[in-house]
Simulated assay, not measured.
Amino acid sequence: MPKITYVDHAGTARTIDGQVGSTVMETAIRNNVPGIDAECGGACACATCHVYVDDAWMEAVGPSEPMEQDMLDFATDVRSTSRLSCQIRIKPELDGLTVTTPARQG
């Protein structure tokens, strides 16, 4: 199982086994990761699962789709590495992925 590391805005890290085919958001919710609210349940209809992808992982994660880019307009403190964790599907190549949650969700 690919391991995903979630770092909160204070720097506390949690590494969790992710299931291939699941999303980074679903894995966070199942494991009570703080800082990922996921109010829409993963429908890409809000921005409350906003994360910052570690620079080293941006290429492996891939670019965001236009719908996700539109939803990021509602997120707080958007950066070049911002993604919605509901749109990052876990695959074996993401073993070791690190994402950081913002200080607050939009």
Rank of each mutant, 00 (worst) to 15 (best):
C46K: 02
Q69W: 04
V51P: 13
A43N: 05
D8M: 04
F74C: 03
T23N: 10
I29S: 02
A60K: 11
V99T: 02
R83H: 00
G41T: 15
G35S: 00
H50Q: 07
A47S: 15
A28Y: 05
A43E: 08
V51G: 14
T48A: 10
P2D: 09
C46N: 00
I90H: 08
P102T: 13
L94M: 10
V61F: 04
A43H: 04
P2R: 10
D70K: 13
S80N: 13
T23L: 04
V24N: 02
T81W: 08
T100K: 06
M1K: 11
V61M: 04
A43F: 06
V24L: 01
M1P: 15
C86Y: 12
P92R: 10
A45G: 15
V61T: 05
R104S: 12
T98H: 13
P102N: 09
S22G: 06
S85V: 06
G18M: 02
Q19A: 15
N31M: 06
G42A: 09
A75E: 06
G42K: 12
W57D: 02
T81V: 11
Y6E: 00
P63W: 06
Q69C: 08
D55W: 10
A60S: 11
A43V: 04
C40N: 01
Q69V: 13
E59D: 14
T100I: 00
I29W: 02
S82M: 00
G18R: 01
C49Y: 04
C46P: 01
T100R: 03
A28T: 07
Y6W: 01
M1T: 14
S22T: 14
A103W: 04
M1V: 13
E65A: 14
V99Y: 02
A13W: 06
E65G: 07
I90D: 10
A103M: 11
I4Q: 05
P2L: 08
G18E: 02
L84H: 00
A28P: 06
V7S: 05
T48S: 15
G18N: 02
E59A: 15
V51K: 10
M1W: 08
